[in-house]
Design a binder for these strands. Structure first.
Lengths: 137, 137
DNA sequence: GTAACTGCAAAATATTTGCATCCTT
DNA sequence: AAGGATGCAAATATTTTGCAGTTAC
């Protein structure tokens, strides 16, 4: 199940307004969201601090992941795959549109293998593609 | 030439203490630096604002580039390749060590090609590998 | 000499922490 | 009832902007 309540239950999180609301936002959005985006949508409903703490909780549980961006704005997206606490399997490519600014998880585009120099051990790989999305061409 | 002065001249930038000093730091460092790292090294010699502006100038000229990181701390590294104003050819992999925290440009490890879904046009690709570096094993 | 660069002050923005209160289970 | 979650206040961190004084060329 991918409704907010199920996600909370599955992760042993209590069912609070802010958690449900923020999860709904992620479920209804097809792109990654910055803290600021979430605040704009929720308006005055929740304290800014609550949003920060809720996002951190979701990260800890492996419900959302952050996407590294060069512009230094932390963006969060739902983990669509089988992430569990402490273990992300986040092997898809992220696309950032230079026109509309949207960050999209290309869930079906997997990160190709890369051969690292001797001595380097990878635990996680991120691939961020900047460019122009289909909507902005 | 890869000394600080040559880099400044080549990019038509005036030769000031802060620019020379900050470039030296990059030239002597084999890993990427956060604004904070630079401030620690330069100490009280330059105003924090000057460091911000100097870094921005270098980015504009294509002398340094920023590296996207999941921890949301902007890191800067020298462009080793033929970056020109507005055009980065930054196709190497970046490695972030989970133990020592150092960010290294793997200049010789190129980013493998990736096939994007129809409609997506890439202008720049970043690949960030997290793991353990040779020094920390 | 002039345009560009720097330092200082301050504003704007982003994030974290402590604590008292409230809510979920 | 008890532990965890929230809201508020405030501390801390980060980045930007305006302006006056200084420096490179």
């Amino acid at each position: 199940m991918t409704d907010a309540l199920s996600i909370l239950k599955r992760n042993h999180l209590s069912n609070t307004d802010s958690r449900r609301a923020i999860l709904e936002i992620f479920l209804q959005s097809d792109n990654a969201l910055a803290h600021n985006d979430i605040e704009k949508i929720t308006g005055e409903r929740f304290d800014r601090v609550t949003v920060y703490r809720t996002l951190q909780t979701f990260i800890d549980k492996g419900i959302v992941h952050t996407i590294p961006t060069a512009d230094n704005a932390t963006r969060y997206a739902l983990c669509r795959e089988n992430c569990t606490e402490g273990h992300h399997h986040d092997d898809h490519v992220h696309f950032i549109c230079e026109v509309c600014g949207k960050t999209t998880c290309l869930d079906n585009t997997h990160i190709p293998a890369v051969k690292l120099p001797r001595g380097y051990d990878a635990t996680q790989i991120n691939m961020i593609v900047n460019g122009i999305c289909p909507d902005c061409r």
